[in-house]
Every structure is written in C-alpha cells, then in structure tokens.
Simulated scan of single mutants.
Amino acid sequence: MQPAVVAHRGASAHAAEHTLAAYDLALAQGADALECDVRLTRDGHLVCVHDRRVDRTTNSRGVVSTLSLADLAMLDYGGEIGVLTLDALLGLAKDHGSRLFIETKHPVRYGGLVETKLVALLARHGLAEPAAKEDSPVVVMSFSTLAVRRVRAAAPRLPTVLLVTQLWPTLRDGTLPPWADHTGPGIGLLRRDPDYVARAADHGHATYCWTVDEPDDVMLCANIGVRWLATNAPAATRAVLGAG
C-alpha cells in the first residue's frame, strides 16, 4: 500500500507556509491529509506558526507568545494578510473531509497550556472523542514526550505520534511508550535505518515520516512501508508514487 501524502504546512514548496493559499493548493494537488504546527498567542489563541518568532515568515519581527491575535492579524505572511488560526484550519479540513495532523511546538512559554487549549478546541469542533482512532479526523504530534503524554491523558481516544530525530536506546527495537500510537521519524533517520519501519510495525506502530521531497526518498518510504509521508510538494510527490 502506498503512503498517504500529507501536505507539510500546506503545499509549502509553492505557497507561503501555513496560509490558506498553501492549504487550498495542497487540496487541489490531491493531498490525502494536511499538517500544521501550533503555538499560543499572548491572549490564548492557537495559531498555525512553526517558528518561535515571526521574523522568517512575515514582514515583521517578534515572538509569537508575546503577540496577541490582533497583532498577528496585521502581518503579511508571504502575501496573505492575517495569521491562520487552528480554528479556521480545522474548519477547512472538516469541509474537505481531510485528516489534519497537528504538531504542538515545545519548549514554549506556556508549557502544557498548549495541549489544554488544543483539546478544548477539538472538543468544541466535536473532534476530541473519535469513535475509533483509525478514523479520527485529527492526529496530534509532538517531539515533546510530555506533550504527547498530556494529550493522551486529556483525550485518550485521540491518536498520537511521537516525533523523533534519533532513536533512543529504548526505541530502537520498534517499541513506543504506551501513550504514543505511531512513530514519527525524520527521513534522515530512515535513510540510516530503513528497517526501523518494519520493527515498529511488528509492535503495532505505523510510521509518519517527515519531510520527504526528493524522489529517491519518496520511493524509499513507499518501499519500506511508511504509512504517512509529509511533503512540501504534494503533487510532485504523488507523481513519483504514481510512476513508481
């Protein structure tokens, strides 16, 4: 079975990341699912921003956690005015029937409040208690083990991904902590250790791999059984999978 194509911050190779334009383009390019990063504003809103600061992605400077939603709404994000809220992106994903992978960023000023606010927002959208994890419209991810544990404690039915850049000794055999459903290695890890996907599968854990844009890497993921492939270029990635 081919990996599902997940649009990393939208079709961010062709449109400004974390903008509605990037997500609309990703859906037009046939992405199977969407991915975003979330941070908390000073006044407690979840916004789709990767970096701690807005310097790289806007026409301004500053730390996301010290800015209000109104402050962020005035900025230019690669030609699109106004920050994308998670609330708005959830609405878009719901309208299109698209699964959304949400990464909480850490360390952050507000610590566990990020996950508390996230679960509360998902509950308002009716997404915090899916009937089955396999069918959940939302998957929550983090590199922070504490963050993933908090999500499991607050919303036990939500599927979770533990993102990893390297395998700790306790993970090398493919096992995961009991509060993580799936594993999330970077493509560099899988280049070095492609058999890890099979070891994780032997323990009942599917693999979400980031960030995969090169054709050889796309085919590697397809050949070793990666289930979800996060890419900045959904159309190009889908074309490689189709050709393979």
Rank of each mutant, 00 (worst) to 15 (best):
K117T: 14
L118E: 05
A120I: 04
A120W: 04
A123F: 01
A123M: 04
R124V: 06
R124F: 06
G126T: 07
L127P: 00
E134P: 00
D135E: 12
S136Q: 08
F143D: 04
T145V: 12
L146S: 15
R149H: 10
R152N: 15
R152S: 15
R152K: 13
A153V: 12
A153S: 09
L158W: 07
T160F: 05
V161L: 08
L163A: 03
V164K: 05
T165C: 03
T165R: 12
Q166H: 15
Q166T: 15
G174T: 13
P177M: 12
P178S: 08
W179Q: 04
W179S: 01
H182V: 11
G184F: 13
I187G: 09
I187Y: 14
G188F: 02
L190N: 08
R191V: 11
D193C: 08
P194R: 09
P194M: 08
V197L: 06
V197M: 06
V197Q: 06
R199T: 10
R199W: 11
A200S: 13
H203V: 01
G204F: 11
A206V: 14
Y208N: 08
C209L: 03
W210G: 03
W210I: 07
T211P: 03
V212E: 11
V212H: 09
E214F: 07
E214H: 10
D217E: 02
D217Y: 01
M219Y: 13
C221E: 10
